[in-house]
Simulated assay, not measured.
Amino acid sequence: MDHRRRTPELLIDLDRVAAQYHELTAGLPGCTVHYAMKCNPHPEVLAELHGLGCRFEVASAPELDLLAASGVDPADTLFSNPVKPVGHIARAHAKGLWRFAFDSEDELDKLAAAAPGAAVYVRLAAHQIRSGVPSEGKFGVDVATATALLLGARDRGLRPFGVAFHVGSQMLLPQAWRAPLRAVAQVMDKLAAEQVFLQMVNVGGGFPARYASTVPPLSDYAAAITTGLAGLPYEVPVVIEPGRAVVAAAGTLRATVIGTALRHGRRWIHLDVGAFNGLMESLETGNQLRFPVTDSRAALTRERCHLTGPTCDSQDTIMFDVELSAGLRTGDEVYIASTGSYTSVYASSFNGFDPPVVRCVRAVLPSAG
């Protein structure tokens, strides 16, 4: 680590990004990968993935603009946000993007007006299984509604193209894909009776990154998805939209200890980065997301500490009971691994503390866990 550089600093190992992408493509053969760029849209990350042949998924027209700057063809991109501003739809369609998600009549009307003739895919509600970073419940409809909406798309001059679902971020249960794929089969059966045949099944993201605990092997996810796809009434191209699984392990967040304190028998280590300027997922998960952590002192004698951020907000705590070197003091550095996803995009300047500077590197970061 270069201790001369200021902190907080987020290091992204592009070689690790490439390795994670290759692991997914090898482990889920036959699935086209559309990287969910919302979790890390850094231009060098996008360029690395584009060079590997990865495709992309966007949630807004400005995200599509970022991809265009990296040379990505909008025609190869999915717009998977089910509810979009009309202006974003029109901008994306004008650039050549032609596949849009939706889950309501209102969205169909917007798409028919702003992207006439576009291909559309309906968002199914996924069976509620709690994921490591709960994120579902806002979008998605049931089988009957999904079928009716796709038929309604045809009536509006749109192209009923596919079905999508998302089981939730950091899903640690491979069987979570089973029930949604059974629902997809039902939609396909109902549409076939109306002579409508789909051309895409989007099984979403949710594939986990490895934090301080182990995760099921990718082969377990592949087996569950393969079994579910085998139950579909006819063969259809399959898309996945991983984000965290591609970039989380590539990130290491360098932070500096700005103070320590002993409170109620436990040492608190205050860093120059916290929940509001980089680690919002600590709050989202109730401090249950356990990032691997090391420090510059690397002492053999260890002690358990509470790791917290720089702001005056009491919620600004990253993790409780973290094992670190005994005797950490102001000026030492702490390294938080598996921080390549969502760290930079969620960050604000709350209380005046700067978000991390992002620096892309190659093959210098230790493995998470």
Results as ranks from 00 to 15, higher is better:
V167M: 02
A164R: 05
V184E: 06
A176N: 09
R156Y: 13
G162T: 11
A185Q: 13
L172K: 13
V133I: 11
L172F: 15
Q170P: 00
V196L: 10
A183K: 12
A144H: 09
A114Q: 07
G132L: 02
V120Y: 03
K110W: 15
Q199G: 12
A118P: 00
S131Y: 06
S169Y: 10
S169M: 07
R178N: 14
V120W: 02
L124M: 00
P134K: 01
G168H: 08
H166M: 01
F139L: 08
W177T: 05
R154E: 15
A179Q: 15
I129R: 06
V163G: 11
R123I: 00
L172P: 07
R178I: 10
H166G: 03
V133S: 08
L191P: 08
D189Q: 15
H127G: 02
R154Y: 13
A179I: 15
V133E: 14
A144M: 01
R156T: 08
Q170R: 04
A144L: 10
S131I: 00
V143K: 04
L198E: 09
A119F: 05
Q199F: 06
Q170V: 02
F139C: 01
A164F: 09
V141H: 04
V122Y: 05
A193M: 10
G140E: 03
R182P: 00
L149T: 03
F165E: 02
R123T: 06
V163I: 13
V196M: 13
Q199H: 15
D155M: 05
R123Q: 05
L172V: 09
A144Y: 11
L181I: 09
F161A: 12
P116C: 05
V196N: 11
S131L: 01
V184R: 07
P174E: 09
M200T: 05
L173Q: 14
K110I: 04
V196Q: 14
I129S: 03
M171F: 01
V143S: 04
E194V: 06
A112V: 07
L150H: 12
R182T: 12
V196F: 13
K190Y: 11
V167A: 03
A144Q: 13
P134V: 03
L191Q: 07
G152Y: 09
H127E: 04
G162K: 06
L111R: 04
G137Y: 08
A193R: 15
V133K: 15
L111I: 07
H127T: 10
Q170C: 01
H166N: 10
R130C: 02
A119R: 13
R156N: 10
M188L: 10
A192Q: 14
A125K: 04
S135Y: 10
S169W: 04
Q199R: 15
M200R: 12
V163E: 07
Q195P: 03
G117A: 01
M188A: 09
M171V: 05
F197V: 08
E194M: 00
A193H: 14
L150E: 08
G157P: 01
P134D: 02
L198W: 13
R159K: 15
E194D: 14
L111N: 02
M200N: 12
V122L: 05
H127M: 02
A183V: 07
V141L: 03
Q175M: 06
A176R: 06
P160H: 08
G132E: 04
A112D: 04
F161K: 09
